[in-house]
């Protein structure tokens, strides 16, 4: 089973304050594939993910989505890609459900409230639906962000340390989400320092900054 690559990076280099983090990095990723970005602390994993989602520009090299440079397909890419970064991007003053509603509103999608509640409950947030995110724990807020990811219905998931702050049960849940997403023809790019077990799925991998 081979697919044409949807996302491709060629010869990507990244510099931070005149210090080269990595260079000559390239990969191709098609539907139904996952990519694990490896590298130690401070080697540029987050920088690479931010380049891949279009938040920063590579020092050299190009990233293409469906054959077109990212900058040219900003709007289409915005619809097909979902990013969960280091910080969760959820508002502390709103409840988990309000956060999902907001995200859907801004993405120009209609939110299926029942599905959103189901997604939150599926991630173990059933008891916190009416609480502002401010009073939730770090791991619970992470789960809200991941529920937003599920609801976004994007083809490509870009996840920066999605397992950080989650308990054993949460890690298993998120691994399950990623596996189901990829096996259903989705794509995922992620970094993690924890052992990752995606049964029946071998992610491609790329290393930064050796």
């Amino acid at each position: 089973m081979s697919h044409p690559p949807l996302l491709s990076a060629q010869d990507v280099a990244c510099e931070r304050s005149e210090h080269t983090l990595f260079q000559g990095l390239g990969f191709e990723l098609g539907a139904g594939e996952a990519l694990l970005v490896r590298g130690g602390n401070g080697r540029g994993k987050t920088s690479l993910l931010r380049i891949l989602c279009g938040l920063s520009q590579p020092a050299s090299g190009t990233v293409h989505w469906r054959g077109a440079p990212l900058a040219r397909v900003h709007e289409q890419y915005g619809r097909e890609m979902a990013y969960v970064g280091h910080v969760n991007g959820i508002k502390d003053d709103l409840t988990p459900l309000e956060n999902l509603r907001l995200a859907a509103d801004l993405g120009g999608r209609a939110l299926d409230e029942d599905a959103a509640v189901a997604a939150l409950e599926g991630l173990g947030l059933g008891r916190c639906l009416d609480l502002p995110a401010r009073v939730l724990s770090f791991g619970q807020r992470r789960r809200v962000a991941l529920a937003g990811l599920v609801m976004a219905g994007a083809l490509l998931w870009i996840l920066d340390e999605p397992l950080t702050g989650l308990d054993v049960h949460g890690v298993a849940l998120v691994e399950g989400l990623i596996r189901d997403h990829v096996l259903a023809g989705g794509m995922a790019i992620l970094t993690t320092h924890q052992p990752l077990s995606l049964d029946g799925l071998t992610p491609k991998s790329v290393s930064v900054g050796d």
Binding site: C53, L55, H74, E75, G78, Y83, V87, A103, L106, G107
Partner: peptide, 8 residues
């Protein structure tokens, strides 16, 4: 970041 990545 999420706002900047929105499809608009």
């Amino acid at each position: 970041e999420q706002l900047l990545l929105a499809p608009y």
